[in-house]
Design a protein around this nucleic acid. Structure first.
Lengths: 219, 219
DNA sequence: GTCATTATGTTTGCAGTGTATACATCTATG
DNA sequence: CATAGATGTATACACTGCAAACATAATGAC
């Protein structure tokens, strides 16, 4: 063993200025990434920690050096999901400066698209498996940030008098409810309408968003 | 063994005119009921078939005489959930004859209440664990029936010109999205607003439903 | 009634899971 | 270079879903 180790030395640090911190080199991130992939490949019920470890190529107890337990790993994946929601909302705002109605519409489209692309992750995020208290601060923070971004759209719309002057959180939650509910019903698939085509989904989302804007708009 | 059996004969059929069909007496129903209870007591991830069997007082493989596998049992529980949604919508219609707007509002309140009372069951119903195709016809039928009831409200509203003349399924899905999304965000609990009080939830739901009605209403 | 068939429930066993514990190895720091 | 802490592994155990063999009770043919 020791002979082989000294003979080859399997690429320990040949030329790695980036901060490869330890043995494996950011195993934590790789585990999160693998978990996310496996999560979407099968459903959440059949995601096993051991399969994640195998996919990464480590022993089945290695993840416990980076995550307290399975739930903690799942919380990490969910946090990434919330962060992406936040990013999509931010991008929607950037795309339509000064037009909160368009921002909301754009954000809705992006939200639905994100959910359609990562249905199992959404199921994890909103499925009640993870506690919503402060057990996982990163998860909580990511979710709160996304909601804050949505509220900013609402506030801008109220400032420019295109949205009603109701309670901000109420309007924001109404908007989120509408889009989130639509997304969930889409991926649930029981509704015959929610066929498949991206175009159909897009059209449908547009209609629902229009109804939403009609409901929270002024006049 | 046989001596004891003949000696006591543990209440096999003392006086049971109702159709207690077999040994246990409607074990299937008891399993479904126990599963539902345990589901709500813990979360869905930690619901085990063996715990259900133990709660009912049978061996841990007895459920397999009534359900093909665990998923099939879960589908049964979910079907009950959809049936209850359908019932609540029907009751909302009965309560406000000739007033589709009030029917929709009432149905929304009842939907939210049902979700708040059975969060884990809702999670099961919409969580993507169960297939939404025709694998479980009863499940599918129960879900479709509930949606049909909602569409009937929409149609009545269109007949009396209180709702827009859009596509019925579109309006129905918009309504369902809005209420369902609200419910899910409520039980998710990340939103600070979704405090706890029944009154608050009621008020919130009323506001969202009003926005919805404003969006799909005429004028 | 008798008895075979079938429906229902139990026992046993197995592979797969999460995770606790003890051990091995690597990296950093004195 | 040596020690300590961080990281990965090996092993063990209780629990899970489920298949197969077995036991018992209800039903139906004769």
């Amino acid at each position: 063993m020791s002979v082989q180790a000294t003979a080859i030395k399997p690429g320990s640090a040949r030329k790695s200025p980036p901060p490869k911190p330890y043995h494996h080199g950011d195993l934590r991130r790789e585990i999160l990434c693998a978990a996310r992939t496996l999560l979407e490949e099968n459903n959440i019920a059949s995601l096993s920690l051991r399969a994640v470890a195998k996919k990464v190529g480590v022993s089945h107890t290695a993840p416990y050096r980076h995550f307290k337990d399975k739930e903690s790993l799942l919380a990490g994946v969910a946090a990434i999901g919330f962060a992406e929601i936040g990013s999509q909302i931010a991008r929607a705002v950037e795309m339509h400066p000064g037009d909160p109605a368009a921002q909301l519409q754009e954000a809705g489209q992006r939200y639905v698209q994100l959910v359609m692309d990562n249905p199992q992750c959404v199921q994890l995020m909103f499925g009640g498996i993870l506690p919503c208290d402060d057990t996982y601060p990163d998860l909580r923070a990511a979710g709160d940030l996304a909601f804050e971004r949505l509220k900013m759209i609402i506030e801008e719309g109220q400032s420019s008098a295109v949205f009603k002057q109701d309670d901000v959180e109420l309007l924001a939650m109404t908007a989120w409810s509408c889009i989130h509910g639509l997304s969930v019903l889409f991926i649930h698939g029981s509704l015959d309408i929610a066929a498949s085509t991206t175009l159909e989904i897009h059209t449908f989302t547009k209609a629902v968003t229009a109804t939403l804007l009609n409901g929270i708009g002024t006049g």
